[in-house]
């Protein structure tokens, strides 16, 4: 690669005259002024890089969250039976690098048609959102698509205890503050 060069290194007459006339300073001024001017009349369209103003007014405008976003966790239920999909296999807890999942289960006899099987059944599920780094490893490890990281991202709470989500919260999801003007 040729060595990096800039116009400042050139010593032509044109450059010298430009420097004498403060061209470099005025060029910058012109750019900022054009932004200022465009900001006054252009239609606002938050998050559009071609517009003079880029700001998205978050609580007023709904935040744009992508489909794959890894936010608040959720325990999915079987849409037909309404039972939890979790088979208490503990794989998610094992996959988590920061140990923020605790799966509680008991072995119980479950009647399935004629047969009676001994099966692990989920009792409690604790998810510590304060420690979680939303890396998705747990959800990837889950064999039943039960644990999932969803799009909600407003996880702030007023007290530390609020970070520990229990099974009920994980299944229902949390109530979010919806902002309006």
């Amino acid at each position: 690669m040729p060595r990096v060069k800039s116009t400042a290194d050139r010593r032509t007459l044109g450059e010298v005259i430009k420097r004498l006339l403060l061209f470099d300073l005025f060029k910058g001024l012109f750019l900022t002024f054009s932004y200022n001017w465009r900001a006054l009349y252009e239609k606002r369209d938050g998050g559009n890089p071609n517009q003079a103003i880029y700001t998205e007014q978050y609580p007023l405008e709904a935040a744009r969250v992508s489909e794959r976003f890894r936010g608040a966790p959720r325990l999915n239920l079987d849409p037909e039976s309404g039972q939890t999909l979790c088979i208490a296999c503990d794989l998610c807890a094992l996959a988590c690098p920061v140990d923020c999942i605790e799966v509680g289960s008991i072995r119980r006899e479950v009647r399935e048609g004629e047969k009676v099987n001994k099966k692990k059944v989920l009792t409690t599920f604790i998810f510590d959102t304060s420690r979680c780094m939303f890396c998705n490893l747990c959800s990837e490890a889950c064999p039943t698509d039960c644990l999932e990281l969803t799009q909600s991202f407003e996880l702030a709470v007023y007290h530390r205890s609020g970070f520990r989500w229990d099974r009920e919260m994980l299944e229902k999801g949390i109530d979010y503050v919806r902002y309006s003007k």
């Binding site: 890089p49 880029y54 992508s66 794959r68 976003f69």
Partner: peptide, 25 residues
């Protein structure tokens, strides 16, 4: 930062996170 934000949006759509991406397995 405006241009960087565009990149982060692409990341968010692709990987699911903006900053601490955990992009590859």
């Amino acid at each position: 930062f405006r241009e960087r934000e565009e990149i982060l949006k692409i990341f968010e759509d692709f990987i699911g996170a903006r900053l601490t991406a955990h992009a590859f397995r």
